[in-house]
Nucleic acid binder design. Structure first.
Lengths: 117, 117
DNA sequence: TACGTGAAATTACATATGTAAACGAATTTG
DNA sequence: CAAATTCGTTTACATATGTAATTTCACGTA
């Protein structure tokens, strides 16, 4: 099952802190998104249906927690893009950014360290 | 305007060689996709509407060519993912793959060369 | 106990996408 | 020239997604 763009914004909130009540998710998204409360409820329900989050009863309401790990999602997304655009290889992606001069000095320093292992 | 997954498969064909008649696009996709000819015609039309390809008359039919450059598309896709998942930085992405041990020896060699510039 | 409230569940509706079939015009062929 | 074939164009329909409004239900309160 796929997680949509809008849904992933909700996931990011829950990945940062959980469990959370719907109301708190709404509050957390107020800054970044211009969504009505109803919209966020819908997204939470779709995520429930997709088994990406779970809800545990807490009195009259529910507390939501991720079931899908961010790491796994990031992995799937990254691998998907790499496979589709760069033949599944990391180096061509880095080459792409280096050609487009999108590598900051910090990137280069970090990469050097990484490569040194 | 966004290019969908299915549409991008058609674009890849045209990026490889163009201009091409619809019939040839169909032939080129026969291997990889299990699509009816009609499906590919639809995708070509949607790409026309999105101004991602253009068509020039060639007798009774049309020859299609990309208007969108693959480089630009790859750039947008990559930057989108990087921004959404890695705070817009390349190094964290590479770190992610290195942790997940998805870096082949060739990747590492290539990266070394790239970093050396 | 009837009533207002707050939260969740259901319903709504437009656009995008995947996947084609049907239709129509031009052209080739018998 | 009539029929068949070949393209492109239009229409179709189900599921996904963005974005909400409406309805319902459990609870605390008048």
């Amino acid at each position: 099952m796929q997680i949509s763009e809008a849904e992933s914004a909700v996931m990011e909130v829950l990945w940062r802190r959980s469990p959370m009540a719907a109301e708190d998710v709404v509050a957390a998204l107020e800054r970044s998104q211009d969504w009505q409360e109803a919209t966020i409820k819908t997204l939470l329900n779709r995520l429930l249906k997709k088994k990406a989050v779970e809800a545990s009863k807490d009195g009259r309401r529910y507390l939501y927690s991720p079931l899908l790990a961010r790491e796994d999602w990031v992995q799937a997304q990254s691998k998907g893009l790499l496979d589709r655009l760069f033949g599944g290889r990391v180096a061509p992606l880095v080459a792409h950014f280096s050609e487009r001069s999108k590598l900051t000095k910090k990137d280069i320093a970090d990469l050097k360290r990484l490569i040194a292992e």
